[in-house]
Computed example of a mutant assay.
Amino acid sequence: MIINNTTSLPIEKKVDQLYACIHKMIGENDFEIDAFTCDALDNEALNFTTKGIYHLYGFLEAGNEQLPWSIILKVIKPDSEEKDDIQHHNYWRREALLFEYNLLDDLSEYIIAPNIYLVEEQDDGTIWLWMERVNGRFPHSREQFNSIAHRLGMFNAEYLTAAKALPDEIWICRNWLKSWTISSRMYAPNPESYIYKLQDEETKYIWDWFKNLSENTNEMLDSLSQLPRVLAHQDLGQKNMILTSDDQLVFIDWQFLSISGIGEDLGKMFGVNMSLGIIPTDQYETYRESLFYSYIKGMRELGWKGDEGLARYGYCISTALRSVWEVPQLCSLAAELESNPTNAKLQERVYQLKQIINIHKAMDYEAESLKRTSL
Rank of each mutant, 00 (worst) to 15 (best):
Y91R: 11
R133W: 03
R137W: 05
D124Y: 13
E120N: 13
Y110H: 15
N5S: 08
N175V: 02
M274Q: 13
K51Q: 15
S294G: 10
G271F: 04
N43Q: 13
F36S: 05
G306H: 13
N216Q: 14
F145G: 01
E44L: 12
I206M: 11
V250I: 12
F48H: 12
S179F: 01
K211C: 15
H140E: 09
R300A: 10
L160F: 05
E289G: 11
E308N: 10
T217R: 06
L46I: 07
K164P: 02
E285M: 09
P228W: 13
T217L: 14
P280D: 13
I33W: 00
S369W: 12
F155W: 06
A62Y: 03
S141H: 01
K13E: 15
Q144R: 00
K197C: 09
T319Y: 02
N64I: 09
L103N: 05
D222F: 03
I356D: 04
L346N: 07
S108E: 06
E348F: 07
L9W: 05
H140I: 10
Y351S: 10
V75S: 06
D16F: 03
H150T: 02
W176G: 07
F145D: 01
I252N: 03
W69I: 05
H233D: 10
L321S: 06
I76V: 14
S193A: 14
D84H: 14
W325G: 07
S258M: 09
D123S: 11
I111K: 02
P68F: 14
W130G: 12
L152E: 06
H55P: 00
L98I: 09
Q122K: 14
L310Q: 14
D124I: 02
Q199W: 05
T281W: 13
